[in-house]
Amino acid sequence: MKAFTVSKAATALMLAGLVLLPLYSQLSGNIFILTLFTRIVILALAAASLNLIMGFGGMMSFGHAAYLGIGGYAVGMLAQEGVGSGYIQFPVALAASALYALVIGALSLRTRGVYFIMITLAFAQMAYYVASGLARYGGDDGLTVYKRSDFSGLINLGNRTQFYYLCLACVFAVIVLIWRIANSRFGLVLQGLRSNEQRMQAIGFPAKRYQLVCFVISGMMCGLAGALLANNTDFISPAVMYWTRSGDLMVMVILGGMGTLFGPVMGAVVYLLLEEFLSQITEYWALIMGPLLLLIVLFGRGGIMGALGRVGRG
């Protein structure tokens, strides 16, 4: 393994940029960029969690946005009921996501391939409609979170810079965790299952159990992203669970490079910046974005990370 590669350099550059961003925002007085990047970092966290099951576990979930909603609604609903403490809100968000992941994972993992894609989508749509039906918590219109999670004494989420660094820290923590998982015995079994499930089962590994645990871990990570997202926008609505949002997350993962550690983060940054950039040029930004995605699929195998790797070798 070479010590220096183009993809490593690009990753380091991106991470340095993310860490130094609040400084730039402060110096230039550009507050908007910090708000934009907080959102990007949170969705990068969600994309990284999706990458754990897609890239390492080989489970193509098309319903990952459901966790964003569950984590978000956990925060929003507790805040509505007068429980403002983040020490309660965040664990509840994680527990709710884990429970949801456990139930739908146990059912969905009975299927495979396209059927798995569709059943995860179906469950996410169900979650979407449940949220739309919650009259007490805003229903279709969504729920305003009047007060951000209160971590008294530790961190103030109302402060932009502190909140940004909290989100960034969560991303780093999750990526370290994914790295540890991927290289553990557990992770190796998962990757073995991804390449050949029958063979792994023949050796004697209980395939579904391993996959289910991975599915739950990924769901909890994304639930965390959801809790952060609700704090970021001070608002949560069923729209964050809509299937196009799950599609967005998938696009970020594939764009960045599935099965790589930093690919999803890179994918989220590039995808959302591109969206922002194009929407500033023209109102009809999707007219460019759509075909661009098509071209990326047709010519850019392995996503950005794959392309950088090829540049490094070439």
Binding site: G113, G247, M250, I254, M289, G290, L293, I296, V297
Partner: peptide, 29 residues
């Protein structure tokens, strides 16, 4: 477009045709 996707991974199909949806919606607008 789609002819070039045959034989590729299902995920590629999802991504590429997701792009097409964006394109069509915007073109109609």
């Amino acid at each position: 477009a789609l002819r070039h996707l045959y034989g590729r991974d299902h995920l590629d199909h999802v991504l590429a045709t997701f792009g097409l949806i964006l394109f069509f919606n915007e073109a109609v607008r």
